Amino acid sequence: MLEIDALSIQLGEFSFTDLNLNVKEGEYCIILGPTGAGKTILLETIAGIHYPKSGRILLNGKDITNTPPESRGIGMVYQDYMLFPHMTVAENIGFGLKERGVPKPERDAAVQKIAATFGISHLLERHPKTLSGGEQQRTAIARSLLLRPSVLLLDEPLSALDTITRERLRDELKAIHKETGMTILHITHHFEDIYALADRVVVMRDGGIVQEGTPDMIMRHPVSNFIANFTGMDNIFTGNAVITQAGIVEIHMGTMIVRAVTELTGRVHAGIRSEDMIISSEPFTSSAQNSFTGIVTQIIDIGAYSKIVVDTGLILTAVLTRQSIQRLGITVGTSVWITFKATSVHVFRE
């Protein structure tokens, strides 16, 4: 539905070259990447704010590379919402329809309808500066959706909100996507957005796409050390992989050996997500092929959960609830067992 074909652009010192991306109709695509990766520039180029040096942007098979922004049928919502401060909420929402020459009665009816959908009917006569962050965000999204864009571009739309408001608006975005079937590209830094919203995730770095796939593929099967670190994979090691049987290797890391399911051999990286680790006070009976004993060296509070750092010869990090920590009697200095499956070990080369 949206095709980015060999796109190249130069803006000051930043550039990307021969960038390719295909987004299916109705897909919710989340774009990840560190600051400076080019995420916002990509969205702005799709929207028509920047024009590329070369390459094409196709929407439903039509080349829109040089089409003016207002004629592309693409909506964009920024992190800071970009509402007109001198206009009321109703005037902000209806601005695009007014520019299109839609008669006032028809425009007002459309504004009332979408305001009711977003629960902001009572705010229509107020001005943006009197609104909360969540109310401004609802207004900005309503303004974009009222124009019925083919594609909605969201540039970190939830980042400036408190946790409760962010969760509520995330649910609203999910409901809007389900109801409308709209194609959405959404830049975020919040990994919870990925599992809650995304059909597909695209990871960018230095103006290029370095991996794309389902949320589970990106989070559990990174193709490089950069992506493993960026997505919060706590346990990343380097070792020498030797085949012991078909599809099973032993990865030698100094005096430690970790078993994994892979065809790769030789010098490799191995990553295990902390949530795939099982901690017990005694040896854990299971089919898991990796089990080590060690000493707890750190307990790091991360809200409802805590990271447990265990020195087994390898420094391994697991995640437990506070209740589990109390039930197991875990403190710094406690001896524990840490267990994980061979299938939980993701093996890759840089």
Rank of each mutant, 00 (worst) to 15 (best):
N225P: 01
L145C: 12
Q298L: 09
D276P: 02
Y195A: 03
S274Q: 12
N240R: 12
G239S: 07
I194F: 07
L58M: 15
L32E: 08
G38A: 12
G247F: 11
G119K: 04
G134E: 06
M277H: 09
N60D: 14
Q298N: 11
S306E: 15
L43V: 14
A140D: 10
G247L: 08
L152T: 02
L169N: 00
E27P: 15
T331W: 07
G239W: 11
V242P: 00
D5V: 12
G48R: 13
A196W: 01
L314E: 07
L185M: 12
A288K: 13
L197T: 08
V201G: 02
N60Q: 12
F237A: 00
D301C: 02
M217E: 15
T165K: 01
I295T: 15
T130C: 01
N229A: 13
G36F: 09
K39G: 14
V89R: 04
K53W: 01
F226V: 10
Q211Y: 12
I325C: 12
A198F: 11
L83H: 01
S280Y: 06
L2H: 10
M204G: 05
F348D: 14
L154F: 05
L59A: 03
H190G: 09
G133N: 09
G73C: 05
L197P: 07
G213F: 10
V151H: 14
R56V: 10
R138P: 15
L83P: 01
C29L: 15
K53I: 11
I31K: 11
Y51L: 09
I176Q: 04
N290R: 14
G207H: 05
E156A: 08
G313I: 05
V202Q: 02
G73K: 08
L19E: 04
T321A: 04
S15L: 04
A228F: 06
M204N: 07
L97H: 09
I299Q: 13
V201L: 01
A140Y: 09
R322L: 11
A304V: 13
R166H: 00
A228T: 12
Y51S: 14
L21F: 07
Y305D: 13
L154Y: 03
R107C: 13
S335F: 00
I120Q: 03
V242A: 11
I187H: 05
S286P: 00
A160S: 15
G208N: 12
E27Q: 15
G75L: 04
K39F: 10
H189W: 04
T293R: 13
G254C: 09
D155S: 05
T40G: 13
I9K: 03
S274W: 01
L83S: 01
T163D: 10
I57T: 05
K62E: 13
M256C: 10
T45A: 07
T163S: 14
V89L: 08
A115H: 05
D18C: 02
A140T: 08
A228S: 14
N225G: 09
L131G: 07
L42D: 09
L59C: 03
Q323L: 08
G61V: 08
D18W: 03
A116T: 04
F226G: 03
A288E: 03
G133V: 09
